[in-house]
């Protein structure tokens, strides 16, 4: 699996996700600067976490208009898989690759701790190594992760099985206790309609080695390798 990781001014998790990919593929991904309108063809594009363009105006708003994102949109339309993590998720919604928006956390605080996620479906490139209903533990680190979409959009997401992960309690109960940011219906991650684009606020790339307190994120990358090699 060949992967590209985008780098914007202010990205800060690009190294983490590159390392996670190298761990499962044995191959360093290509790092692509935001000003590059063209880059080598890859099997996967990753939009990493951070604070692209200093979060000016709205998180992800500037990055969504960058030359590299125009190319990512073109390739996503052709079906190239895109994994958008944290700030990457914000960029993907601003770019129109995914519906809805990530608003300021309901309690107005930056949250930085492990969360539990319920895997809503194993039927995707990104989640095929998990079981539907499985509970995994991965960290979050964000101030704007409060997912919101209007009622029609939410209904479409639910009807088409486009919710990938929901915040939950350690036992898998989906309620307010496991929700770190006020996201509507505890939504932590979603797919586009074709399930070739996934955006999520938590950081699976920071849960790939036992030394860092957990490995639950590793299966996401291994699943991608299975699907894309």
């Amino acid at each position: 699996m060949k992967a590209a990781v985008l780098v914007f001014p202010g990205s800060n998790r690009e190294g983490d996700v590159a390392q996670a990919i190298e761990l499962v593929t044995g191959r360093r991904p290509q790092m692509v600067w935001h000003g590059d309108g063209d880059f080598e063809k890859t099997d996967l594009i990753v939009v990493p976490g951070g604070f692209s363009y200093g979060d000016y105006l709205r998180c992800g708003a500037m990055a969504a208009q960058s030359p590299v994102m125009a190319e990512v949109k073109r390739r996503a339309q052709q079906g190239v898989p895109v994994l958008a993590i944290c700030n990457g998720f914000q960029i993907a919604t601003e770019a129109g690759l995914l519906p809805g928006v990530l608003m300021r956390n309901a309690q107005l605080k930056f949250v930085c701790h492990d969360v539990h996620l319920k895997v809503e479906t194993s039927q995707s490139l990104f989640t095929n190594r998990y079981q539907t209903g499985q509970v995994i533990r991965v960290p979050v680190a964000h101030a704007e992760g409060n997912y919101f979409a209007d009622a029609d959009t939410l209904k479409r997401l639910e009807d088409r099985g486009q919710v990938a992960f929901r915040y939950c309690a350690p036992d898998g109960t989906v309620d307010g206790s496991g929700n770190p940011n006020g996201s509507i219906d505890n939504i932590a991650g979603i797919f586009n309609e074709a399930k070739t684009v996934m955006g999520l606020m938590p950081h699976p790339e920071n849960a790939v080695e036992p030394m860092f307190g957990g490995c639950d994120g590793r299966a996401l990358f291994e699943g991608l390798v299975d699907a894309l090699t």
Binding site: L57, R58, A61, M62, Q65, T93, E94, G100, V101, M103, F148, A149, D150
Partner: peptide
């Protein structure tokens, strides 16, 4: 529409 506002919210 393109940048200054996110018309979703």
């Amino acid at each position: 529409r393109k940048l200054l506002a996110n018309t979703v919210i």
